[in-house]
Simulated assay, not measured.
Amino acid sequence: MKSNKILGIVALLLLVGASLAMGVISSEEISPLEAGYEVGDIATDFSLKNVDGKMVSLSDYKSAKGYLVIFTCNTCPYAQAYEDRIIALDAKYKSKGVPVVAIMPNNPSKKPGDSFDKMKERASDKGFSFPYLIDAGQKVYPQYGATRTPHVFLLEKTSKGNEVKYIGAIDDNYQDAASVDEKFVENAVDAMLAGKEVPLKTTKAIGCGIKA
């Protein structure tokens, strides 16, 4: 089984190389090979700069029961479509011990609209009630295995550490919040807070590829 997996990775690399050579895809469109955390893993803490200039870590939230770590940005249309819903998630769950911690993972040299100054403007204009952190050096998003904006990781604070309980999309309709049928994140947080099994642990994150 291990040899089959290695052969599969080699075949994927060869296919990507051939596609680049023929101009079918560009290097900016390639996401890293899927790695990072899986449900049940323990996520390490981080220390990233917030738009207010202060450094923020998960350990700063002493009374938290968990965290909604959301990789998002200024410029992606999908991320923009979800901003009000992210604000609503923080408003609903922060008082219950599960705050939103937003992280901007893009390389600002590739996306100037995601520069730190632009992040500060966006947070002010939208009235973000949560920290909006820059992943300077792009060290954190690969650890998580985030590939899209937005990409959600629900963590539960446990005696073992911050355990990953859900990974994926916020809900099933990025285009229209009023037409959402299934609220993936809310269902996951509600189950976690009730001490129940999260009903759907992973979904496909829909959004723009992270720019390295």
Rank of each mutant, 00 (worst) to 15 (best):
K2M: 14
I6A: 13
I9L: 10
V10G: 07
A11K: 14
V16E: 13
A18N: 12
A18P: 04
S19L: 15
G23I: 00
G23Q: 10
I25R: 00
S26V: 06
E29Y: 11
E29N: 12
E34C: 09
G36S: 06
G40S: 11
G40T: 09
L48K: 06
V51S: 10
V51R: 04
D52M: 07
V56F: 13
S57N: 12
L58P: 12
D60M: 04
D60L: 01
K65Q: 10
V69P: 00
T72I: 08
N74C: 02
Q80Y: 07
A81V: 11
E83A: 08
D84C: 04
R85H: 00
I86D: 03
I86W: 00
A88Q: 10
L89G: 04
K94S: 13
G97L: 02
V98N: 00
V98G: 02
P99D: 06
P112Y: 06
G113S: 02
D114T: 02
S115F: 00
F116R: 11
M119I: 05
K120C: 04
E121R: 11
E121M: 12
P131K: 03
Y132K: 01
Y132I: 01
Q138D: 04
Q138T: 11
Q138E: 06
K139F: 03
Y141V: 01
Y144G: 06
G145N: 05
G145T: 10
A146G: 05
T149S: 13
H151L: 11
L154W: 02
S159V: 13
S159Y: 03
K160H: 02
N162R: 07
I167L: 14
I167D: 05
G168A: 10
I170V: 07
Y174L: 03
Y174C: 04
Q175R: 14
D176C: 07
A178C: 02
K183Y: 12
E186L: 01
A191C: 10
L193N: 09
A194H: 08
A194Y: 07
K196I: 09
V198C: 04
L200C: 09
T202P: 00
T202F: 14
T203E: 13
T203W: 08
K204I: 12
A205P: 05
C208D: 08
G209N: 15
G209E: 10
K211Q: 12
K211S: 10
